[in-house]
Design a protein around this nucleic acid. Structure first.
Length: 298
DNA sequence: GCGACAG
DNA sequence: ATCTTGTCGC
């Protein structure tokens, strides 16, 4: 039971998945469709969503899918939905959507039913959009299935279509100066597949932003930048933090004995109902608003 | 056998 | 993805 969530799918399944990706790819809209996307200050944008799926260590099928909605430009969480799910597909590079997207679509559906007024105007997705083996990453997949504008935000460069995380690439990264600086990721065909973005002043590793659905790459990059308090855009970061928290709470009660790790030295647990973290430990120049997302000065 | 490999 | 403590800096 549920072995399919752990084993690599047979080639036949991958073929079917590729056909599905090709079919849905024809429905992707890679340009701005909303008025706020064209506005220099994104005026009209009020809600940005973030999705993520966290996993249970040592369990190949249990996971927590989360969808959060943040106000813009304040970036405060106004909606949260964490749901434990049973995975049916394994992770295979290039097919991430078949593992995670069904649960994210479910979450969007629940939101549409329970709080239509809080449905986000755009979703930031952990993963790639057009920057993908077949030009149809998880951000495109979720966008097409929900008809919501989506942006792909990956933490690592997916090396496809000639893109490589080599010395030259690292050199360009080193040239990025301040938050908002970026450079295009050009595929072998000459088409720009995405953008490497320094999401804030002190961040060594860039974010790899690409179009998911119903948004232009330029707006996608500006929006991502506008959602960053730290390196990871707040919507995705909150979705991640909360889904992991949900797992801890859910597992904490129904989990065997703690493996009793004996560090015959130091180490002591806080042990209070302390909830630490969660954005309040922010830098000196704490912001009330997101950084001005207007086009990079150059 | 070796390198790659979003999450 | 997951595990994991401290540590250095603003």
């Amino acid at each position: 039971m549920a072995r399919e969530a752990a084993e690599r799918p047979p080639e036949e399944t991958l073929s079917l998945w590729k056909r599905e990706q090709a079919r849905l790819k024809a429905l992707v809209v890679d340009r701005d469709t909303e008025a706020w996307q064209r506005d220099p200050a994104f005026s009209g944008l009020q809600r940005v969503g973030g999705v993520d799926v966290s996993f249970v260590k040592g369990d190949r099928v249990s996971a927590c899918a989360s969808l959060v909605v943040l106000s813009y430009p304040e970036l405060e969480v106004v909606y949260e939905d964490c749901h434990m799910v049973s995975l049916t597909a394994p992770y295979v590079s290039g097919f991430l959507a078949f593992r995670e997207v069904p649960f994210l679509v479910d979450a969007v559906q629940r939101l549409r039913e329970q709080a239509p007024g809080l449905v986000p105007q755009v979703l930031l997705v952990d993963g790639n959009g057009l920057l993908h083996h077949r030009g149809f990453g998880v951000a495109c997949h979720l966008g097409v299935l929900t008809d919501l504008p989506c942006v792909g935000v990956a933490k690592k460069l997916l090396q496809v279509d000639g893109l490589e995380n080599n010395a030259q690439h690292k050199e360009k990264i080193g040239l990025l100066q301040t938050g908002g600086d970026s450079f295009p990721l050009m595929g072998g065909s000459g088409a720009v597949l995405g953008t490497a973005l320094k999401s804030h002043d002190r961040s060594t590793k860039p974010l790899y932003v690409s179009v998911g659905h119903k948004i232009s790459l330029e707006a996608a990059v500006r929006l991502t930048r506008g959602c960053c308090r730290f390196r990871i855009p707040e919507p995705v970061r909150q979705a991640d933090i909360r889904s992991r928290d949900h797992i801890r709470r859910t597992l904490g009660a129904s989990r065997p004995p703690a493996p009793k790790q004996d560090r015959s030295q130091k180490v002591q647990k806080p042990k209070g109902g302390s909830k630490e973290l969660e954005g309040e430990g922010r830098p000196p120049e704490a912001r009330r608003k997101a950084p001005d997302p207007r086009a990079p000065r150059q």
